Amino acid sequence: MQRVNMIMAESPGLITICLLGYLLSAECTVFLDHENANKILNRPKRYNSGKLEEFVQGNLERECMEEKCSFEEAREVFENTERTTEFWKQYVDGDQCESNPCLNGGSCKDDINSYECWCPFGFEGKNCELDVTCNIKNGRCEQFCKNSADNKVVCSCTEGYRLAENQKSCEPAVPFPCGRVSVSQTSKLTRAETVFPDVDYVNSTEAETILDNITQSTQSFNDFTRVVGGEDAKPGQFPWQVVLNGKVDAFCGGSIVNEKWIVTAAHCVETGVKITVVAGEHNIEETEHTEQKRNVIRIIPHHNYNAAINKYNHDIALLELDEPLVLNSYVTPICIADKEYTNIFLKFGSGYVSGWGRVFHKGRSALVLQYLRVPLVDRATCLRSTKFTIYNNMFCAGFHEGGRDSCQGDSGGPHVTEVEGTSFLTGIISWGEECAMKGKYGIYTKVSRYVNWIKEKTKLT
């Protein structure tokens, strides 16, 4: 034993070699072989497995989906700052455009905790909710729209109204504003409101030439003092309507412009014939205590009207009353817009006519005020429907199939267009061939041609 100890002390290297040989010859039971080890760690190889990531292109799944990435790591994937920024906006807080917040056709661009709407022409605001041009839906104005110097929408209202708090709607500024039905039992019968379409306001006024200088022999019209197929109006439903009495009662109609003036057809009036105007009328054979009678003290036909040349060209006249009318729910003026808007309103496509005229061709006159909704007829169809001249200051309205029309005794009465609950004068009943005849239409004086003249002559002093 002493000898062994001496050998170990003198030859430590020998001992180490012996131990190493023993270990190498022993069977290893701690580690699995290569094949079995792979069965336990069965993990798919990654895209760049075996390579240094710093030297390969980034992978979106590896960089940002398996674990949260930084902007720089995302930049490695896209290799483009702009594309990385677009991805980053949604990656950080989701897609803010998912709810489609942009209105009126706006395009949404996502941002971090926010979004941006790219608005089409005519709109602005956070969600493109603000109209900035009158060309689109009248700028959301209830009545009139004008573009300011910086191309912003400025709404306005006709006389007797003021802008509401929203700067879009119009509200009454006087007790009985024009064009409004205020009798409670008839307010439910107000005709369907007309909503502004998209309009090209630059070209809204037709490029028409008034044929002022045409000389033409007097034409022989049949029954051209021209509501057939209409309905009984309720008291106060058309408070701007008046009836004219002269040699015979209810020979023509008219509309209240203001307390002192009536507008009617020029062919209705004769110099030297006494005319009485009755406002607030409903049943011409009954006294309903809503009527107001006034005498006409002055007749002003349009300066281009000449019955000797043509009885229905420039067929418009103004009547001055001896005493002002007292405005109330049964006696209310009709609204008159400017030339541009009167023309736009007419193009809405349908209007209402009213009167006490004959209820059928050569038949009896109506006792109760009649009204009828009539569609506008395109000019080409209008011209083809008659052998008589249709001037540019006239328009056609009615039904091709016949059966409904204005008729004798309705002449001078109103053709009105309702705009968001307020009625505007767009025409004056003038003439036609018979009444409600198939293929024939009622012919009306186009008020847009005469609004400046009306307003100039009827100013209240």
Rank of each mutant, 00 (worst) to 15 (best):
N313R: 13
G179I: 01
G94D: 09
H314C: 03
D93N: 15
I316N: 00
G349K: 10
W88E: 15
N310L: 04
L60Y: 07
F360C: 07
S385R: 13
F144T: 00
D150P: 09
Y201E: 11
S70R: 09
E165W: 07
D249H: 02
E193N: 13
G21Q: 04
G58W: 05
Q143R: 00
F388Q: 15
R373Y: 07
A266R: 03
H289Q: 07
A366C: 06
E418C: 06
Y450D: 01
C28S: 14
L19N: 02
R373S: 11
R140W: 12
L460M: 12
V227P: 12
D150V: 08
W88F: 14
K247A: 09
T29I: 14
I210T: 12
V368Y: 08
T218G: 08
K68D: 12
S365M: 14
R358C: 05
I443M: 07
F71A: 04
A149L: 09
A337N: 01
Q219R: 07
R364S: 14
L103K: 09
G13D: 04
A436M: 14
R294L: 00
S329K: 12
V278Y: 04
L318E: 01
R83L: 11
V326D: 14
N283A: 09
T85M: 08
E142K: 07
T389W: 14
G229K: 10
G402W: 15
D322G: 06
G105V: 02
I334G: 00
P101E: 03
E456N: 12
I214F: 07
K438M: 06
I17R: 02
E54L: 04
L60M: 10
D249N: 03
C396R: 02
G94T: 12
S406Q: 13
K39I: 08
N313D: 08
L24F: 09
I7A: 15
T133P: 15
T186A: 10
T218I: 08
Y201H: 08
F348N: 15
G50V: 08
N36D: 09
N48E: 15
S423L: 09
Q216F: 08
N104C: 01
L52A: 12
T290A: 05
I7N: 15
Y341H: 06
N147K: 15
I7V: 12
M437K: 11
A307S: 11
Q2N: 11
N222Y: 11
N59I: 05
D93T: 15
D33W: 08
P235C: 03
Q96W: 12
G357L: 07
E433P: 10
N328P: 02
R384I: 07
D200T: 09
P333N: 04
P197K: 12
A366P: 14
N166A: 03
S184F: 12
D110W: 15
L20Q: 02
D405R: 14
N151G: 12
G246L: 03
S220T: 10
P172N: 06
V199A: 06
K45Y: 04
C128I: 02
V56A: 15
C382P: 02
V56Q: 13
V273C: 02
V296T: 02
C396H: 02
F348T: 14
G230Y: 12
N313Q: 11
H303A: 10
T461P: 09
R298K: 06
Y161F: 09
T215R: 06
T186I: 12
E165Q: 08
R373D: 03
V56L: 06
R3D: 05
E72N: 15
T16F: 14
I428N: 01
V77Q: 13
F224I: 12
T332K: 06
V273H: 04
E10G: 15
R162G: 05
E340Q: 13
E288K: 06
G427S: 01
E116A: 13
G432S: 10
V359N: 09
M6H: 06
K339T: 10
F121P: 15
I214Y: 13
F121T: 15
P235S: 07
A397N: 01
L41P: 10
V154E: 08
S204L: 12
V416P: 01
G50S: 07
G50T: 15
T264V: 04
L189W: 09
S169W: 06
C268P: 00
G94M: 09
I297R: 05
G427K: 00
C128R: 02
I336H: 00
V326R: 09
V242Y: 00
P177W: 01
R83S: 13
L130A: 09
S169E: 08
R294Q: 02
T158N: 06
N213W: 04
N304S: 13
I7S: 06
W118D: 10
A366M: 08
N245D: 06
K455R: 12
L319W: 02
K457E: 12
D249C: 00
L41S: 12
P197D: 09
V416G: 05
L244H: 02
P235L: 08
P101I: 05
V4H: 11
I256M: 03
C28T: 08
W261A: 02
P239T: 01
S365N: 10
N258E: 01
Q167C: 05
K168D: 03
T389F: 15
A173G: 09
V263P: 00
C435P: 03
G122Y: 04
Y371C: 07
T190H: 13
C170S: 01
T271Q: 04
N295Q: 04
T225P: 11
F348Q: 10
D198R: 11
W261D: 00
Y352N: 08
K51M: 05
N452P: 14
F345N: 01
S255D: 00
K89M: 06
N80Y: 04
T271C: 03
G229Y: 12
E116C: 06
P197W: 07
G160K: 01
C69L: 04
S406C: 09
D410I: 10
L163I: 07
C157K: 00
S25M: 14
N258H: 03
A164E: 06
R226L: 08
Y444E: 01
V174D: 07
L372V: 11
H303F: 10
Q96I: 14
N100R: 15
Y441Q: 03
F176R: 05
K459S: 14
R3P: 10
A192C: 04
I429F: 12
L14T: 04
T158C: 05
N203D: 06
H415L: 03
G403W: 14
L130E: 09
C155P: 00
S99F: 13
I390Y: 13
S385D: 12
P101F: 04
V257M: 03
C28P: 04
T271W: 06
T458K: 02
D33N: 08
S182D: 05
E281F: 10
K146D: 11
N283T: 10
E456D: 14
E67T: 12
G349S: 10
L19C: 07
T290N: 10
A337M: 01
V353D: 02
K247Q: 06
V199S: 08
C145S: 03
G427I: 00
E281L: 13
E320S: 02
A37D: 04
K260H: 05
E193Q: 06
F87P: 15
Q370T: 06
